[in-house]
Design a protein around this nucleic acid. Structure first.
Lengths: 154, 154
DNA sequence: ACTAAATTTGGTATAACGCCAACATTTACT
DNA sequence: AGTAAATGTTGGCGTTATACCAAATTTAGT
């Protein structure tokens, strides 16, 4: 499994990273534990693993922040989710069905496949559960999210 | 997870059942062990699990046979594989890529989704890695396969 | 009957999850 | 500041899904 195949992380870690990304790049243990209804201790342990994998920085008792690599990968995970959901919608599923279906298997779909599907669909911008971001835009959009979160936390 | 969601079995067991189905409904430990390059003891254990799950009948030291339920499910697994592969081919992937991609995630795709996609694609007959069988035909075709295998083993 | 091949058993291992109880830290309130 | 509540962490344990190895068993061929 090459490091950029898109298959480096198991399903649950992908979900957590997407969530952190969408929360502006930072999160605390309880944010995730309650969002996913799992025990906080599970999240602490997952933070440790994602930190040693280079996806997160963990400051004990304070929370995590995505690293650059983590942000890049999370952006891909979100894009992958949206491309695949859109593909299913274009193949007969309702948006909600598509989203749920994709959540179960997305972690097993390679970047190469996603890129091909994306190209084939004409690099759509509007997905079924949010905008689809294409490479260059990711950093920009995320920077905005970060700035917003910073200002909210002052 | 309802019993007919199509998600009752983990990936590897799905692969094994598909293989047994395509071998005519019966197989011996070594057939599977060598086809998948795993230790025979792993297969023996999996046979036990699939037997207690009602998918197989296992006669120790002699091999397994699909039960009716096992045959029905295996037929669905194969149909699912082909429908999904075809969808990916129709969305930009090569047949080989599609097959390999689908093998990784097919076990997570529900029957309901497959049925919708199948309908949306117009109940295609020709898949990218074999014919796509639709409900009524399954028993017929499989009966033929069984008969063939019987005659070969005389 | 004897041996070789196939199969099974029993033990062990890994990854990916998750829970609980006990302990530690931080925060918020009086 | 002092303490209680909220939050987070540790250590232990459990499950499912896979797989391997070595030893024992069964079957098959001569």
């Amino acid at each position: 499994m090459s490091p950029h195949s898109g298959l480096a992380l198991p399903a649950r870690k992908v979900e957590y990273l997407k969530f952190i990304f969408e929360s502006g790049g930072t999160a605390r243990t309880n944010d995730i534990a309650s969002a996913f209804s799992v025990d906080p201790s599970t999240i602490t342990k997952t933070f440790a693993e994602l930190t040693s994998g280079g996806y997160l920085l963990h400051t004990p008792y304070r929370g995590v922040t995505l690293t650059d690599a983590g942000r890049r990968d999370a952006a891909f995970f979100i894009r992958r989710h949206r491309i695949l959901s859109l593909m299913l919608v274009r193949n007969g599923l309702s948006p909600k069905e598509a989203c749920n279906e994709v959540r179960r298997f997305e972690s097993m779909v390679s970047k190469k496949a996603v890129d091909r599907i994306c190209e084939f669909m004409g690099h759509p911008r509007q997905g079924v559960c949010g905008e689809i971001t294409h490479d260059d835009e990711e950093s920009t959009l995320n920077a905005e999210r970060m700035a917003l979160k910073m200002s909210l936390e002052h």
